[in-house]
């Protein structure tokens, strides 16, 4: 099995505070990794370390290495813009950019210099279809992305990431504000997409991890407590903390 990310002795500091402590594990390609843990456990911070979004926060510093395809993404001359094209991200709050549905989807691709309108049209249809949104918006691609419902906006955000044809998709609690039907649509999309992408899904909803993830990691207080196949984590966890969390005893 091919390794996509290799995390070695990762410590992450925010100003003086150590937010992530000694994280070590590998993330296999073309699987869905679910990351669960109570809020404040560092799971979102960890996710944002994978495409260096934490760089935007003043005072963030890391020690250790994160290797993407065996290349250190924190080495000094690493191209962050190229990294974010390879490692796309969907945020907790669905925020379309202030432009039309169509322009939202092709935004990243246009910036990379693609302007062939036929190519872009095809890309829009393909991406929106893959994010289960095409049928709902195909007749109004020119309207503002901000006029869609919350669930549709989140699928639009997924589509704009897919249009970039990344290798990895990071999702940060993508369904936290969505109704069960929209949630199901996103989950359906993810299970289809893992064929072509490596997916890392941070979720507050342990049931969601149990439903869609191949592997599950449990974070607590900035530490990786346990990682294993989803079946093993949810039926026979090795650590008492994991068991307490998934059975709802705390968190």
């Amino acid at each position: 099995m091919k390794t996509k990310f290799h995390i070695k002795d990762l410590d992450l500091f925010f100003k003086e505070e150590k937010v992530l402590k000694q994280i070590n594990f590998e993330i296999p390609a073309n699987k869905i990794l679910g990351i669960i843990g109570p809020s404040g456990s560092g799971k979102t911070t960890f996710l944002r370390a994978l495409n260096r979004m934490n760089d935007l926060e003043d005072g963030t510093r890391i020690e250790g290495n994160i290797l993407l395809d065996e290349e250190d993404i924190y080495k000094p001359d690493y191209d962050v813009v190229a990294l974010r094209k390879k490692v796309g991200m969907v945020f907790a709050m669905p925020v379309p950019l202030p432009m039309s549905i169509y322009e939202n989807v092709v935004y990243g691709v246009r910036l990379s210099g693609v302007n062939d309108s036929k190519l872009l049209d095809e890309l829009v249809e393909k991406s929106l279809t893959a994010s289960y949104l095409w049928d709902e918006v195909k007749d109004r691609l020119k309207t503002s992305g901000m006029r869609l419902s919350g669930g549709q906006q989140q699928r639009l955000c997924l589509a704009r990431v897919l249009a970039m044809e990344p290798e990895v998709i990071l999702l940060d609690e993508p369904c936290s504000g969505l109704d069960p039907i929209s949630t199901a649509k996103i989950e359906d999309a993810l299970t289809v997409l893992k064929k072509d992408y490596t997916i890392i899904l941070v979720t507050n909803n342990t049931k969601q991890a149990a439903r869609v993830a191949d592997n599950t990691a449990f974070f607590l207080m900035g530490e990786l407590i346990e990682i294993g196949s989803t079946g093993q984590i949810f039926t026979t966890p090795n650590r008492i903390e994991t068991n307490d969390y998934i059975t709802g005893r705390f968190g």
């Binding site: 974010r84 925020v95 950019l97 202030p98 935004y107 990243g108 990431v161 970039m164």
Partner: peptide, 27 residues
């Protein structure tokens, strides 16, 4: 301008300058 606009744009591989003139100026 909501920080999420900037993050959304940067996460799609836009540079800071591209983000300014495509998103922030507009908003």
């Amino acid at each position: 301008v909501p920080q999420s606009y900037r993050e959304g744009s940067l996460a799609l591989g836009a540079t800071t300058w591209q983000t300014i003139h495509m998103v922030t100026v507009k908003a």
